[in-house]
Design a protein around this nucleic acid. Structure first.
Lengths: 214, 214
DNA sequence: CCAGGGTGTTACCTCCGGTAACATGCCCGG
DNA sequence: CCGGGCATGTTACCGGAGGTAACACCCTGG
């Protein structure tokens, strides 16, 4: 039996454990779930990042392909955007673990830490950037706007989708509408409310200033 | 000497180490930088999260206050939004470490893991939500839209700001314009480009489907 | 027959977060 | 003056993490 089938079995086991224990599951736990011991995992995946990476790729490829397809759909732009939003939300709704891996692929990784967008999300951002660049006439600022918006939209949907998944404040279609409305400038178009300014939170007096002394 | 000054000194040391070694710095390293050993750190902050939390709070309170102030500024809405965006970008630009803490406060935390928005960012999201709720007339959907948009806008600025900080593709004011334009529906208003659909990336055939067998 | 590549094991390493248990210095009330 | 009390600090340890070395089995194919 070649390596591939075993690899798949191990990934399935890892899948189950991460689904059960969260993305911080230990290699020992994964090995136990697979009915084996650690070194085998390391033989197949090199290190923990290798395992998580393979798992992420497996879970993400479908969603990424679906989003890519949605971005290429021959629809009116608003409909296309809604379609993409719905595709993403449906994906993370169907498999919360996918979503966990999307956002937290490497907890505590010292090398690539600090990036706001995990690799899988960067791919999505790049897809959006490409789509905007090739489909929308933005004049001279094309490249800059497309890149900035690709990242921005991805982050927006990530954060909003996260909140939606956690609290489920409304149906998916309603959420899609809310996000599309935001992208469509409804924040700009809405009327002002009669100015009743009431500071709800206590004020913090500190200004941004650096700690230097010791 | 009461506890507070020592606490500050320890925080300063932790600050230096995290600035040098990144957010994954070990407690041992922090203790060494402070010229002491681990148990003292634990006496003061309970556990690692306590330390990181205190550090985060110290670094972010200023930025949060500044954003709060910007949201309450008596300006035309577009100007106010730009002011908020600029405040955020200026904050992370002035202190990249702040930004690291904003986004990666707890690498590998098993309890609250999976949240897309770190605590500090959630506070920002809540501020935006409050501001939208109290300033913009959104009809019956007020609460839902304000909450969804608060998270969404925060995530958008986080991701876009991250990319901007890393690659510095343009000036800060230009970036503010790009994001404000996105929020102002420029994506919706722009004209279509002549449809030249060219799939840049290779298609992945997989559909979202779950791994079950073993 | 035996080499190679898969399967698996036990035992160990280093480092991390966290915790006893113990020793010191200082101030403050009897 | 003295003895708590409360801060300071220490060394030594624990359990568990990721990761590795060394070894053993099994099965297929030249």
């Amino acid at each position: 039996m070649s390596r591939e089938p075993r690899r798949e079995q191990l990934l399935n086991a890892a899948d189950r454990v991460i689904q059960r224990d969260g993305p911080g599951a230990s290699m020992n736990a994964i090995a136990a779930e697979a009915g084996i011991t650690k070194p085998i995992l390391y033989r197949h995946f090199g290190d923990r990042n290798g395992l998580i990476g393979a798992l992420t790729e497996r879970h993400t490829s479908g969603l990424l392909a679906a989003i890519r397809a949605a971005l290429a759909e021959p629809l009116e732009r608003r409909d296309r955007v809604e379609h993409v939003l719905d595709t993403y939300l449906a994906g993370i709704e169907a498999r919360p673990q996918v979503y966990r891996l999307l956002t937290h692929p490497d907890p505590g990784d010292p090398s690539g830490a600090g990036r706001a967008l995990a690799p899988a999300l960067r791919q999505i951002a790049e897809e959006i950037t490409r789509a905007v660049q090739s489909q929308v006439d933005l004049g001279a600022d094309r490249d800059l706007l497309a890149e900035a918006w690709g990242r921005g939209i991805t982050g927006m949907v990530l954060a909003a989708g996260d909140w939606w998944l956690e609290t489920r404040p409304c149906s998916r279609t309603r959420m899609v509408q809310a996000l599309a409305d935001l992208l469509w400038g409804r924040l700009a178009a809405a009327a002002d409310l009669p100015t009743a300014v009431l500071p709800t939170a206590p004020a913090t007096t500190a200004e941004p200033s650096g700690p230097e002394a010791d």
